[in-house]
Structures are given as structure tokens and as C-alpha cells.
């Protein structure tokens, strides 16, 4: 049976893409962020996952407000990104894994998660940048399955629902007939707010408690409504829902191998965690 080897959760701010394109990783502004990643890359080189299930939110590249799925699963043989309107460079296409995608879809719907399935799907910076941070040479060694969560248009799925979706993904992988080693990636956050007179809001105490809860008490954040999470983490900090899905996919006993936290990159408190299943 397939096995989840661990999870990587990281911020996905577009400015990361610009910094990588310009080779600014060791620039004083960026160094505290990028220096978080070598331990992650070392772990990946040791574990060698075969496939990555990437939990992220689309920012208006693939989905528009005409149709806004709460949960969408990619089922394509290949995923590409594209011009998002402000000029971060595109990266090579990602291989899909349609067989695993359809197994996930079958299993999740049997588990009462009503999904949108996507046989064509563009993936935006929230999908591409975390993988580029893991593999900066852009030679993707993994097949991929995108799982897109609506964090854009309220009502959003609750934190509790997102955690349970992760648990259902964990069960789906456990029943997948293959020897694949599966990596879970959860992207976005941590606290930030781009819009309104509260723009620039960052909440370090909340972020640190949230990161601590990922191993100490993984369902801690599920006590909050999405409005309460927006109040604590900001309108875009709500992307921590993607972290909760990723966390839910791992066993409760998952342990932290590495983490990093830095304020700010762009308008965002950046967080990174590496959890072993």
C-alpha cells in the first residue's frame, strides 16, 4: 500500500518567485526565509517521495467567481502554470498522476466529500512556488495531484471540515494499491492581510501557537470559525486552512523535523514546517 512519508507546509507569497528569478536567496532581506529550506531539501533527497499531493488555494488563475468550488481535485496528466498578470516567470510543467487522482476522488466522495474534478487545470503560484522551494532546479522528481481549497470567497469551508478532508486524504492514500511514497504539501499563510485599512496585519503570537499546535494539538485551530481565524490571522492568513488539510492527512503522532518562521516577506509572516508521518 502507498505510504504518506510526511508533510511540508510553507508560505507561497508571489514575491518568493521574483526573488528566486533574480537570485536574491542570500540577499539580507530574503536570507532568513530561504535559509529555512536546505533541511527540507536534505530530507527530500533522503526520503525520495514518488508523488506529491499539493493542498493550495487558487488566486484567480484557474478559477474565476463564475464557478467557485469549495474543494477541487486535479485529474490531469500534466499541470501548467501561466502568466498571472504581474509577471512572475513560469516554470516547467508538472507531471500528474491520473490514477491516484481518480482513486482520491473515488475515496473522498465515498467519504462524503463532494468534490469538483478537473481534467484540465492551471496551477498558480500557490502550487508552483512551494515545489520550486523544494526543488530549485525545477526538475520535478515527483508526480503531482493538486487539491484546491476555496479560501477566496466566503463562505469558506470550516477549519474542522478542512482537517477532516485531510484525514480522508490520509485514508485514501492508505488504501491506494501501490508502493508509492506520498508527500503532502500544504501552502499559504501564515498571518497576513492585503486588503482594507487593516492591511499589513500580522499576528506573531497566533502564528507561533498555530505552528506549535501542529504537533502538540493538531485540531487546536478547529475550535475557531473562519471569521475568528480571519480576525486572528488576517483575510489571507486564512490560507492556514491548507495547512490543516495537510496536517489532517498525517497520523496524530506525526513529529516535527524542522520549522522556520520569519517576518516579513512582502506583507506576510512566513512559516515553514517539515513533519514526518
Amino acid at each position: 500500500m502507498a505510504q504518506i512519508v510526511g508533510a511540508i507546509t510553507t508560505s507561497h507569497v508571489p514575491a518568493i518567485g521574483r526573488a528566486m528569478a533574480k537570485g536574491l536567496e542570500q540577499d539580507a532581506y530574503w536570507k532568513p526565509f530561504f535559509d529555512g529550506f536546505p533541511p527540507v531539501r536534505d530530507w527530500l533527497a533522503e526520503v525520495l517521495p514518488d508523488v506529491a499531493i499539493v493542498i493550495y488555494n487558487d488566486h484567480g488563475l484557474n478559477f474565476f467567481l463564475d464557478k467557485m468550488p469549495t474543494f477541487a481535485v486535479g485529474a490531469a496528466s500534466e499541470y501548467r502554470n501561466a502568466d498571472e498578470g504581474w509577471g512572475i516567470p513560469t516554470v516547467p510543467a508538472f507531471r500528474g498522476d491520473p490514477a491516484l487522482s481518480w482513486h482520491l476522488i473515488e475515496s473522498l466522495i465515498a467519504d462524503d466529500f463532494d468534490l469538483t474534478t478537473c481534467q484540465e487545470m492551471l496551477v498558480d503560484h500557490a502550487f508552483t512556488l512551494p515545489l520550486a522551494l523544494c526543488w530549485p532546479d525545477h526538475r520535478w522528481p515527483v508526480r503531482t495531484v493538486p487539491v484546491c481549497i476555496n479560501t477566496v470567497q466566503s463562505p469558506l469551508p470550516s477549519a474542522k471540515r478542512c482537517y477532516r478532508l485531510g484525514q480522508a486524504i490520509g485514508r485514501a492514500v492508505a488504501s491506494w494499491h501501490s508502493d508509492d511514497k506520498v508527500l503532502i504539501v500544504g501552502t499559504g499563510g501564515l498571518s497576513h492581510q492585503l486588503d482594507g485599512t487593516r492591511a499589513g496585519f500580522i499576528n506573531k503570537p497566533f502564528d507561533l501557537e498555530f505552528m506549535d499546535s501542529m504537533t502538540r494539538d493538531p485540531t487546536w485551530a478547529t475550535q475557531y470559525s473562519t471569521a475568528e481565524l480571519i480576525e486572528r490571522a488576517g483575510t489571507q492568513g486564512i490560507e492556514l486552512l491548507n495547512w490543516l488539510v495537510a496536517r489532517g492527512a498525517l497520523p496524530r503522532s506525526a513529529r516535527k523535523l524542522h520549522s522556520n518562521y520569519h517576518i516579513p516577506i512582502s506583507n506576510t509572516a512566513s512559516g515553514l514546517m517539515l513533519l514526518a508521518a
Partner: peptide, 19 residues
């Protein structure tokens, strides 16, 4: 829960909802 009179509960923030 975002509903009724408390549709926008966070100061300085317009939650992007159905309206």
C-alpha cells in the same frame, strides 16, 4: 458564523462574501 447583522465582524476588513 457570518450572518445577519454581523456579516462583517472584523474591523478594517471587508470579508469577500456572496454580497
Amino acid at each position: 458564523m457570518i450572518c445577519g447583522v454581523n456579516r462583517q465582524p472584523v474591523p478594517g476588513t471587508t470579508i469577500f462574501d456572496g454580497e
